[in-house]
Design a protein around this nucleic acid. Structure first.
Lengths: 213, 213
DNA sequence: AGCCGGGCTAAGCGCCCGCTCAGCTTCGGC
DNA sequence: GCCGAAGCTGAGCGGGCGCTTAGCCCGGCT
């Protein structure tokens, strides 16, 4: 709600990356990593997409891995922010869960290029970078588990295995980044709505709670 | 049902790969690809794990990509076989869907090393190999969609969007290969059971249909 | 006007990649 | 006992990788 348009796509998600050339390199790296994977992408390819010489990359980033690290951190922060906004809003547990899944999935679909890198290139990170990212991922997990626990406590949900169900819900949402294509038949909003409904079913919520029609 | 033990793990899944040295190389490649990814794995690493010199690889396989292709095809065939056995058994749509998800998920968890390669290294394949694999993937999709359509037709399931729900169910199952770890708290069988339950909820099946207790 | 420093490039270093090839060993058929 | 084929190795080729360095350009301060 309130955001300019929902299907922003690639509007200006990297406004916080400050030198302009650094941002162009980072955007180029996201595209390349998403298309071919981190290890199959060369620094020459990244620099070429950004319209620069290979050496220019090393003025703004110490190594190729630092590029991945930056993408990964900013991407995780964005996804977490989207999730938190929905999770901490007002409403019943069912409403919050539906909105959390809807917006989280919508982001993974609309930003599937970034999301693909963020979710599937993690093991190219070194131990320190990975430790930092793992903290963000734990926050994501805790946020979703919190809503589900609320729903169980209030009697809205029927969930025998809270940790397992949380894992499954997040797994479902994250995997959107793998299969979603802008050329496909569904818009990010449609996928978000479908997934919100499916997740409410998974937790045994009363269906009429968030389906007005 | 009937199979020796459920959590076979790495029993002898590559019995059909005939020269013994070729099998050892293939098993080594599966391990290496699953750990580091296809592009980050070197032919020297594969040969080393198999206890051979780098050149030995090229006696049994034309290129490194052919190794991936072989792994991918055999892996997809195994997964499809597991799914088909369950999907084409007797029983209501709910029972068949539950058993299909249970065994498919169980395979992805127990064989998560292979499954990881099969599901996440696909885009390293060339166009011809990818076209072949895509055919197998379509069969997987059609099999699951068939059960869900049966359940809708018989009134067992309540599914507004069959294609979307099929996609979500398969996505959920496949993603198990990404997060499952043998060191984790759950056995493959436990994950299979949990997921079968969650999927029955997603399709709006009557819960008591397959829960004896 | 003169200079200084950051942004950028052309060139290239050292390394390791996928893959090849000549030659060695081994073993079944006669 | 000899031969040819198959399996395998040690050495190495061509090339592309991540990354560095010397030097150019240009805008801003004095």
């Amino acid at each position: 709600m309130s955001g300019a348009r929902e299907s922003d796509g690639e509007a200006q998600p990297w406004a916080e990356v400050t030198p302009d050339a650094a941002r162009r390199l980072l955007v180029a790296a996201v595209e390349a990593f998403a298309e071919r994977g981190y290890h199959a992408t060369t620094t020459r390819d990244i620099a070429g997409r950004a319209g620069m010489s290979p050496a220019a990359l090393y003025i703004h980033y110490k190594t190729k891995e630092e590029l991945l690290h930056r993408i990964s951190r900013v991407g995780h922060e964005k996804a977490l922010e989207v999730l938190n906004t929905a999770a901490r809003g007002a409403g019943t547990a069912a409403e919050r869960l539906a909105e959390a899944v809807r917006s989280f999935v919508c982001w993974h679909a609309a930003q599937h290029t970034v999301a693909r890198v963020v979710q599937y290139e993690l093991d190219a990170l070194g131990p320190e970078a990975w430790a930092e990212i793992r903290g963000l991922r734990r926050q994501v997990d805790a946020e979703v588990r919190g809503i589900i626990e609320d729903g169980v406590a209030s009697g809205e949900f029927d969930v025998p295995d809270v940790r397992g169900t949380t894992l499954a819900v997040l797994s479902l949402c994250i995997d959107v980044a793998r299969w979603f294509s802008a050329d496909g038949p569904r818009t990010p909003d449609e996928v978000g709505a479908l997934y919100a409904d499916l997740v409410l079913r998974m937790v045994g919520a009363k269906q009429d709670a968030s389906r007005p029609a």
